[in-house]
Design a binder for these strands. Sequence first.
DNA 1: CCTGAAAGACATGGGTG
DNA 2: CACCCATGTCTTTCAGG
Lengths: 164, 164
Amino acid sequence: MGASVVLDPVDLHLLRLLQNDARATYRDLAAQVGIAASTCLDRVARLRRSGVILGHQLRLDPAKLGRGLQALLSVQVRPHRRELVGPFVERVRALPEALTVFHLTGPDDYLVHVAVADMADLQRLVLDEFTSRREVARVETRLIFQRWDCGPLLPPGASGAPPG
Amino acid sequence: MGASVVLDPVDLHLLRLLQNDARATYRDLAAQVGIAASTCLDRVARLRRSGVILGHQLRLDPAKLGRGLQALLSVQVRPHRRELVGPFVERVRALPEALTVFHLTGPDDYLVHVAVADMADLQRLVLDEFTSRREVARVETRLIFQRWDCGPLLPPGASGAPPG
DNA sequence: CCTGAAAGACATGGGTG
DNA sequence: CACCCATGTCTTTCAGG
């Protein structure tokens, strides 16, 4: 299930193009890759079935939605036992301010990426939803100046440039 | 430009649905929201023009691409001046292992989310691309046990459930 | 904001190297 | 077996009210 999948250069080219614009038509994709549209459809359908493509996501601008401030919260949950951390993660995931939650190695058990309206909103979030909780031993807040998304995700060793 | 945008309940409902499945057809969206398909198209086009919708992204499974290990690297860049950090960020963004880069407040200037093949690959990445660099004063590596994506991003105060 | 029609994309089945 | 071509169906898109 979690095994790696064999991908030929055509698959990689398709994935690269789709990561730039996931709504590109199969016709356009096929033209750029140099195969027929139906073949392109077959390829992408297979990538979906094999689990390489998990889904299609909308990228939104948090600032345009009135969430101009983003932060990372490092959270220690003590004691770090299943019956405590399970509900903790679910509660945090359900917060409208939460974007992503990471469970990490190291002294800070969880990293929570949040988007809030402003500093007062962030203060309220930290005080009411984190430090006031018994299971939360410590919270460290870092503001995000800027965020960059990186190039397309490709298998190790795959060249970044399209072939030919 | 960065200003917030007025969104009525129909817009919010559309955004919620599209965040679940960004490739849903306008026909299906319209049926669920209770408007005509053409109106739905108008709405989404306006959301795109106004910048609320930045784009459509493919969600891939890093493990299926042979990148089964993810980590967060906290990086101190010293001295923290523009002529050093600009190239640093661009170089890191260009790494095939890099997923996201954050510029943060606090003692750790940058947080880099990476996906690698295995522990040896991570070691190589840290040693060759980070600690060997003159401008990198310190790197702290934390492994990611698990990652959760959270609910749809909505404006502050917007109810999470669609309107009855 | 809806209706309706035209243009276009998707998805299937059959044929070829 | 992977690919291409042709076709019916559905979706998108643009008038007009």
